[in-house]
């Protein structure tokens, strides 16, 4: 016997976290940060054929301070890496990162002196999107996976603090990205 039985019809119960997560999905704004080839596909994502406006996401925010999604769209050079980190740092919490394309995820075919071998060396990544470049459809899919996943179920309040602390502890004891082995198994 809970409070549910006493409710009149038409009233649903949920958590504050759930409501906020549900609302956040609708106001999910990527920062305008194009790097390379993937950025052109990212533009196509907002253009008529794929039309991110269908679910209200065609607005890319020019200022990172108004954005909560960073799409690392392309190869990250050694020279660009600090800039990306600064853009990420300027974004308000909560924020998410999509690593778009093979170069951003792993360095791709450019395994050389100039390219950071995966943007997860500099920012925490939520979704890795394969492809060179990924089709806009794939970016849409990544976006929805992120929305339905971490965005919708993002903890708030003390839960958030606890989660952040746990994540930080885990990151502190984890080996550096370069030393991680066997993750693909």
């Amino acid at each position: 016997m809970g409070i549910e039985d006493k409710l009149p019809s038409g009233v649903l119960l949920t958590t504050v976290e759930g409501v906020i997560g549900w609302l956040r999905q609708a106001s999910f704004w990527p920062a305008t940060m194009g790097l390379a080839c993937c950025a052109i596909e990212m533009m196509a994502f907002g253009a008529p054929r794929f039309d991110a406006g269908r679910w209200g996401q065609e607005v890319f925010r020019a200022s990172p301070r108004q954005a909560d999604l960073l799409i690392v769209s392309g190869r990250v050079s050694q020279k660009m890496a600090p800039v990306i980190r600064q853009v990420y740092d300027q974004m308000p919490n909560p924020k998410w990162v999509i690593s778009m394309g093979a170069c951003a995820s792993s360095g791709g075919m450019f395994n050389n002196y100039a390219i950071v071998q995966g943007c997860d060396h500099i920012v925490p990544v939520d979704v890795y999107l394969p492809g060179c470049p990924p089709r806009p459809d794939m970016l849409i899919d990544a976006m929805f996976k992120l929305r339905k996943g971490d965005v919708a179920h993002h903890a708030i309040g003390p839960n958030r603090i606890a989660e952040d602390e746990a994540a930080e502890q885990a990151a502190l004891v984890a080996p550096s990205t370069l030393e991680m082995k066997g993750l693909m198994r």
Binding site: L35, G74, S77, K79, M80, V83, F110, A114
Partner: peptide, 11 residues
């Protein structure tokens, strides 16, 4: 410039 230097020529 150089923020997208990829080292393609060397690769």
């Amino acid at each position: 410039i150089g923020f997208l230097h990829t080292g393609i020529e060397k690769n």
